[in-house]
């Protein structure tokens, strides 16, 4: 407890009461719009399943749950490192900001590699969007998410370059927080997508 006494004082009575939204307001509207699009997609999957229960239950068994689970761990861990980058910025720990963004980016890269392995097994088996309703949803939903992982990694690349220039710190972490929020959204969407498409039956 004693070492808490020298904690920084930016949280004065004035700022402590003010609730603060991390990052820029615009990114949160963008995130909300993306999440609503995915909500429609998730609901469409669930309701399409309701009228094709046997088909969905049968073909869901052909999905690789190990790769899906591994990808969940990769996105969660990638998100966690980007939180650490934001925390490092708030502590003005310059080197840790860029390093943590880089590790988060590598987790995203791992996700893409695993997904490509998964897709090539499916496409190699002759499966396509037109095979049946289940695969149509499986491919379009996961690919739509895949593109969001790529966009998230492009954003992380920009954040990494900026972090190496020393743009972020205690004085300003808005850009970093905005990009981080988008990256967490990619994680959040997969947290719903994985049980829904790979496991629930």
């Amino acid at each position: 407890m004693t070492n808490m006494t020298d904690a920084p004082a930016p949280y004065s009575a004035e700022t402590a009461s003010a609730r603060r939204l991390p990052g820029d307001l615009a990114i949160w509207f963008f995130i909300l719009a993306e999440m609503l699009a995915f909500a429609v997609f998730f609901a469409a999957y669930a309701f399409a399943r309701a009228s094709h229960v046997e088909e969905f239950n049968l073909y869901q068994q052909t999905l690789d749950r190990n790769l899906g689970g591994l990808n969940t761990l990769l996105l969660i861990t990638g998100s966690w490192f980007v939180v650490r980058a934001v925390q490092a910025a708030h502590k003005d720990n310059q080197q840790a900001i860029a390093l943590n963004i880089l590790i988060g980016w590598l987790c995203g890269g791992g996700f893409l590699i695993v997904k490509v392995i998964e897709y090539s097994a499916k496409f190699g088996a002759g499966i396509s969007m037109s095979t049946n309703t289940f695969y149509m949803f499986y491919i379009s939903l996961t690919f739509f998410h895949f593109m969001h992982v790529i966009l998230g990694m492009v954003i992380l690349t920009v954040l990494w370059v900026q972090a190496r220039k020393g743009v972020y710190g205690r004085h300003d972490a808005h850009g970093l927080e905005s990009g981080a929020a988008y990256w967490h959204m990619v994680d959040l969407l997969w947290i719903v997508l994985f049980p829904l498409v790979y496991v629930m039956r």
Binding site: R19, R20, L21, P22, S79, W80, V82, V83, V86, E177, A180, A181, H184, M185, D187, L188, I191, V192, P195, L196
Partner: peptide, 20 residues
Amino acid sequence: IAFVKGRLVILDFMELREAP
């Protein structure tokens, strides 16, 4: 489980616990 996980991402990763 997905709800608990999503909530943790929203509150502790996105840091919306102290947000408006």
